[in-house]
């Protein structure tokens, strides 16, 4: 378990990073927290020729809010995000999902944007990002573009980032205030493991208790986190009721194409999609009814 030969770069500016990526393309890998990449390099599953360490670049570790959008820099650690009062206030489901990522020692090193760019189909933060209609800011020597969350994830470990692009920021639109509730719920085989199913849901109710907005993002079941659109539509206009959550769960389970792994067959994952969606919606609804969208 020793990595293959690679060269190590430690630039002090983003422009230098973009330069390295433009020059080496798919042979270069960006190193942020290293919680996935180093392991894969040791197993030689990943054999980049150039490792571009961004940890010495100033200004990438900030969480800010601008015009109702939370911005998370490329070096913001998962632990920082998890405990950030700003993120907790505006996008509590992101904090809730963040608390489920591995163990504290991993979260102290791993970055939010790194987890998103790595695109493990089971990972919690991409699932929450998709529920929040978040965005990824990608930059290269060619310029900058913004990628909507749903278009970011193409499949297991595959994203819309081009070879020469780096994800420099994640953007999370704040949830509406008022009767909005959200929840992230997952099933893991062991504490701190990646989930076999994780669901982030967001519900907004009107004064009569009718659902005016529903967002369901199902992670770990398919080959990427996906919105359960049919289930979302079916919820509109309904009231909060266990039977409604059950129906939505079944719809969600039907619309996600499951991907088997050693931890669960397609059938089991589909089954869990239904169970966890139902439970997640129920929890989100309870929070919406409390009138607060805190976790």
């Amino acid at each position: 378990m020793k990595p293959a030969v690679f060269s190590y770069q430690s630039p002090r500016t983003l422009d230098e990073v973009f330069g390295e990526l433009a020059e080496h393309g798919s042979d270069a890998r960006v190193l942020a927290g290293g919680q996935s990449l180093i392991r894969l390099m040791n197993a030689r599953t990943e054999t980049p020729g150039v490792l571009v360490d961004i940890n010495r670049i100033p200004g990438l570790d900030e969480v800010t809010v601008e015009d109702g959008v939370v911005r998370i820099g490329a070096l913001v650690r998962q632990r920082t995000s998890e405990v950030s009062p700003v993120i907790r206030e505006h996008t509590p489901v992101f904090s809730e999902a963040g608390a489920e990522v591995a163990h504290v020692s991993v979260r102290e090193r791993g970055t939010v944007v790194g987890s998103i760019a790595f695109a493990d189909p089971c990972a919690e933060l991409p699932t929450a990002l998709v529920a929040l209609d978040g965005e990824i800011v990608a930059r290269s020597t060619r310029g900058e573009r913004v990628i909507p969350a749903e278009q970011m994830f193409l499949g297991p470990y595959r994203t819309a980032l081009a070879e020469d692009e780096m994800a420099v920021e994640a953007r999370l639109p704040a949830l509406p205030t008022g009767r909005t509730g959200s929840a992230f719920l997952e099933i893991t085989r062991r504490h701190g493991e990646l989930p076999v199913c994780g669901v982030a849901s967001i519900l907004r109710l009107d004064d009569d208790g009718q659902i005016t907005e529903a967002r369901i993002s199902v992670g770990a079941v398919g080959d990427r986190p996906q919105r359960a659109r049919a289930a979302e539509s079916a919820l509109l206009g309904r009231t909060t009721d266990p039977e409604v959550w059950r129906e939505a769960g079944e719809l969600a389970a039907r619309e996600i194409e499951p991907r088997p792994t050693v931890h669960g067959s397609s059938a089991y994952r589909r089954h869990l999609a239904s169970v966890v969606t139902r439970r997640s919606l129920s929890r989100a609804a309870a929070r919406a009814l409390e009138g607060a969208h805190h976790v």
């Binding site: 197993a43 085989r189 062991r190 504490h191 701190g192 493991e193 050693v262 931890h263």
Partner: peptide
Amino acid sequence: ISGSFREYLMPSSHE
């Protein structure tokens, strides 16, 4: 297909 501790699970102190 359970060749690492991501697939071959053992109980931790949590379990």
